[in-house]
């Protein structure tokens, strides 16, 4: 039976057909309900397509400057350790403009949770190249495809899991129902870790951006299966006990 999670407002979202953001929003809300933490939640929306997260999540949410959610989250969690503090960020937000804040929050082992949605481009601004764009991928700033002069995709999970104080790092995907369920399990664990005071957890979620990729929704899922997940290998990168 279809029921709306209590933590999701009963409104239509603005995402393009086939976009992954709506799926992750719902998973997030379901997890908050299941863990019974709605009244403790402080979520941080990014600057990116998910900026309006606060129109959809029915818990306390704020909007941080582009790339700065991990810094904002650090202050909130340090000052109110009893709250559950989650940032929701795109690839431009997390690892281009906000790379330093992410790196240092991880290095301090902040007891926060990051949901990082990797759609290999800047969705909100019209599909430009991101640090995660696949070599050869055409974007509005790499019309001939990303070349070696544009750098290679940054592998966030590989990078962040190498940091000593980091607790949990996993990469999942949205390209099939099984993968969506796996994503939910990883997201839930990343929040449970925070509740258990275990420290910094990050889940990277490979997500479809059919609009920027100029694909039909189904083809976008296939593109993740056949291309994106070959560049960004799925799995648990760190699970510190």
């Amino acid at each position: 039976m279809f029921v709306l999670p209590k933590s999701l407002k009963p409104v239509k979202n603005h995402y393009c057909p086939g976009c992954g953001h709506g799926i992750v929003h719902r998973l997030f809300a379901e997890i908050v309900d299941e863990l019974g933490i709605r009244e403790k939640m402080i979520a941080i929306a990014p600057v990116g397509c998910a900026v309006f997260g606060y129109f959809y999540w029915d818990f306390d949410t704020l909007e941080a400057a582009h790339g700065r959610p991990p810094a904002v989250a650090t202050a909130i969690k340090r000052l109110m350790p009893e709250k559950v503090v989650v940032t929701y960020q795109g690839d431009g937000d997390l690892i281009a403009i906000g790379g330093n804040e992410c790196l240092h929050a991880a290095n301090r082992g902040e007891n926060i949770t990051i949901f990082f949605l990797n759609n290999t481009c800047y969705g909100m601004t019209g599909g430009q190249m991101a640090p995660t764009t696949i070599p050869g991928q055409k974007t509005t700033t790499t019309a001939q495809g990303r070349t070696s002069l544009d750098g290679n995709p940054i592998k966030v999970c590989e990078l962040i899991s190498s940091i000593d104080y980091v607790t949990y790092v996993a990469r999942t995907s949205l390209h099939s129902p099984e993968n969506i369920l796996e994503t939910k399990r990883a997201m839930k664990k990343a929040i449970q870790n925070q509740i258990d005071n275990k420290g910094f957890s990050l889940v990277e979620i490979l997500s479809m951006c059919p609009t920027s990729w100029k694909m039909e929704p189904y083809d976008a899922m296939k593109y993740i299966e056949n291309v994106v997940s070959k560049e960004f290998k799925l799995g648990v990168y760190k699970d510190r006990k």
Partner: peptide
């Protein structure tokens, strides 16, 4: 007390504290 990684972090952590 928090020694930040940059003034970008300083002002955004200040933002985080202010928001709560």
């Amino acid at each position: 007390f928090f020694q930040t990684e940059s003034e970008l972090a300083s002002i955004n952590m200040t933002f985080g504290a202010a928001v709560i």
